[in-house]
């Protein structure tokens, strides 16, 4: 017991499990617009939480409030039980914003940018240790950007830039990781890689809050969800919270809802229907004749079907 108290005193953060507590958060921007009102939710360690809502529902605002970049007009945020400023100075939280507002002509290489993630671990002269270099290598490896480490930061594609900033957040080793739409503009391979990465971090006890418009992948990797529309509409475990009813409440009329069934889908009389709900991205749905066939064959079937439909249209 005594021992634990000691550790708590020396490095308060080390002993604390990851947690985010948002209490009655209200954020009003200087122009008088209240983007978020009375939002509350709580998250614990070893979890990936999706933050879901329409454009302008206040997702980024919640992130900014958690980082202390906007001052709440009411309510408060605590990270690992600490006030925001303290949590940040203890390097507990890493944040990847929706879009990076940096000077792309700045003379820094990819590896230099990722090294910035280690600054919080260095002494005041910021001289990287062997461990810091190792962590940078590891982070670059994890987002599959090692081959580009000597490139100047502006000489990358949009998705590659995003991956570099993700690597920087990983190198930071915060126990709370905030990702504001990490999957927009990212190809499927990288998205899968990132999701696997997040799962590993969850195993290690990290807490991740991820905003996304990719509703399809939410049940896939998120164990918690927070549904947002200028306030928290619902929050809790994915299984009980991420329901059609709640989603319809969150998205109002904006949601695309494709219902497919009966003869529109197949020729026999199967009563089952497919319900496709999507937010901003239009799903690509192939409905091949024989789903067991190889992928290629399936695609060709789909093409045939489309061609047939077009014929029918004319």
């Amino acid at each position: 017991m005594m021992n634990r108290l000691d550790t708590v005193k020396r490095g308060e953060a080390v002993a604390r499990p990851a947690s985010i507590a948002v209490n009655d958060l209200t954020v009003t921007y200087p122009n008088g617009f209240t983007a978020v009102r009375d939002a509350s939710f709580e998250l614990g360690p070893g979890s990936i939480c999706a933050l879901v809502g329409v454009n302008g529902s206040g997702k980024s605002t919640v992130f900014k409030a958690i980082m202390g970049f906007v001052t709440p007009t009411a309510g408060q945020v605590r990270l690992c039980g600490l006030p925001v400023e303290k949590a940040i100075s203890q390097n507990i939280v890493a944040y990847v914003p929706q879009s990076e507002d940096v000077d792309w002509n700045f003379p820094v290489l990819v590896e230099d940018v990722v090294m910035m993630g280690r600054y919080g671990h260095m002494n005041f002269l910021r001289i990287p240790s062997k461990k810091d270099r190792l962590k940078v290598d590891e982070a670059l490896e994890r987002v599959n950007m090692s081959a580009y480490r000597k490139r100047q930061i502006g000489e990358l594609s949009g998705g590659q830039k995003k991956r570099v900033f993700l690597a920087r957040a990983l190198a930071q080793e915060g126990r709370i990781i905030l990702l504001d739409e990490p999957f927009t503009g990212i190809d499927v391979t990288t998205e899968t890689a990132i999701i696997n990465l997040l799962r590993d971090l969850r195993e290690a006890g990290h807490l991740m809050l991820v905003s996304t418009h990719n509703l399809g992948s939410v049940p896939d990797f998120c164990d918690q969800v927070v549904l947002l529309n200028r306030t928290v509409l619902a929050a809790g475990p994915t299984a009980s919270t991420f329901t059609q009813e709640n989603l319809e409440r969150t998205f109002g009329g904006v949601l695309r809802n494709f219902e497919l069934g009966g003869h529109a889908l197949h020729e026999d009389d199967d009563a089952r229907r497919i319900n496709v709900i999507t937010d901003d991205e239009r799903p690509l749905v192939f409905y091949g004749v024989k789903s067991r066939k190889k992928k290629n064959a399936k695609k060709q079937d789909a093409k045939k079907k489309t061609a047939k439909n077009q014929d029918a249209d004319q």
Partner: peptide, 22 residues
């Protein structure tokens, strides 16, 4: 000589600099 790196991060990416407690 003491603050050149912190200044570099601040000038490159001010949001991030704030996010790591600079």
């Amino acid at each position: 000589a003491f603050i050149w790196k912190d200044l570099m991060v601040t000038f490159f990416d001010e949001t991030y600099a704030r996010g790591i407690g600079l």
